[in-house]
Design a protein around this nucleic acid. Structure first.
Lengths: 224, 224
DNA sequence: GCCGGTCAACTGGTTGGACCAGCCCGATTG
DNA sequence: CAATCGGGCTGGTCCAACCAGTTGACCGGC
């Protein structure tokens, strides 16, 4: 219900400004109770995909202007992720951009316990090396420590969204992503740069490391 | 109802793993019908602040690990923004980081109509100069074009979240922010760099422009 | 003919109560 | 003691009203 309407909105089947059917009608159309409709509409409202007004009709919003990053992660697992061409590519670019700055801020701000925790996590990361799946999980845990160490709440929340959303379980990792995961040396070096508080070097290394999984952008090439 | 529970969770009054009261109890406590409780819980669930399981009890999640960036923007206006110390500072940093990369990608990818639209928006921006409020609105519209021109959907969605959330209407602009808004020359120059497809220079200028409104970070200084 | 108030018919918002479905845990029973 | 069963909790769904705003057509007076 929620997922269906959401998909229709982002797909453009329901255009911005267009009034949705009345709750009672929707209930009949979907063969479901009106309360179920209302809960779905509440979720659409929170996702800022529709606007409801007491007495008036519920209208579709322009999601490109109103929807938030959490659009990338459906609901609590079950609802299914939204299918937006280009979103995954964008998520990887965002990971590279924000991850690098998080490493920089972490090198700038992290206190002793934090840097030690990162070093310890680096060892755990190295030890889970043969298994790609375990490596991926350890990589996420490792980055989480850095993002937390950056002291930037917005980065932390965006990190959660990306991990649970567009970056989660998108099939087998690409060759570039595999290469990134296997480069334990770079991870170790980044941990060292953070521990020794070298923001600029940490930023540069993190940027290089995270940019590997990106499809190179050429002039005029639009992401879809 | 939603806002109250949300605030209790992020404030730590309700700790992760702790089971929430039953829906029927919550309805009685808040003096409201159970259906209203359910709608609030649905929203908490979508915000990934609680986990509900049929038959079991609804439990509080660790929002630092699960909540997404949209936590920064309450609901549709009315619900009120969450009060999370440090979130606003983090949001400004994120704006600087993502905005700069968006400018870079825009310079890399934007086609002719897009660059022309940006140039036109720059003029509109310059013309709304005396009024700080109008200038701020024009600034947002201007940046929106750049973010859209970057072809990165994740940036666009995050931009929406930031604009409507932590960055929205937080009192009068600071002196640094005012200086940024009044620097029409920098805006114009950035538009030129984008139109002439110079990603590196665009990135550098955007980064400088957007970093002005930031509180400088010193070693060991944690953002709260 | 135009203006302005009124009212009926929508819209979403809330309520109460009943019942279904899944989980948990203690009592029962082998 | 262990496996099983069942009752009483949990959330999930439904029906049937009624409240509360909004809208627009209608009708009277100017």
């Amino acid at each position: 219900m929620f997922a269906i309407l959401r998909d229709r909105i982002v797909a453009g089947t329901l255009t911005p400004g267009q009034p949705l059917h009345a709750e009672r009608e929707l209930a009949q159309e979907f063969g479901v109770n009106r309360h179920a409709v209302r809960e779905a509409l509440r979720r659409l409202q929170q996702a800022r995909l529709v606007e409801v007004s007491h007495g008036g009709r519920t209208t579709v919003l322009d999601w490109r202007r109103t929807a938030g990053l959490d659009l990338a992660v459906g609901g609590t697992g079950g609802s299914g992720t939204v299918d937006l061409p280009g979103l995954e590519q964008g998520a990887w670019e965002m990971r590279a951009c924000v991850g690098a700055d998080a490493a920089r801020l972490c090198a700038l701000r992290a206190d002793r316990p934090t840097t030690e925790a990162i070093t310890a996590a680096t060892d755990r990361y190295a030890q889970s090396q043969p298994d790609l799946k375990a490596l991926g999980a350890a990589d996420i845990a490792w980055w989480r420590l850095i993002v937390e160490g950056s002291g930037n709440l917005a980065y932390l929340l965006a990190f959660n969204t990306l991990v649970q959303g567009a970056l989660a379980e998108s099939g087998p990792p690409t060759a570039a992503r595999t290469a990134e995961l296997l480069d334990v040396a770079a991870h170790r070096q980044l941990a060292t740069l953070i521990a020794s508080h070298e923001p600029e070097a940490a930023w540069r290394l993190a940027r290089d490391l995270l940019s590997r999984s990106l499809i190179p952008s050429r002039r005029g090439e639009r992401v879809r």
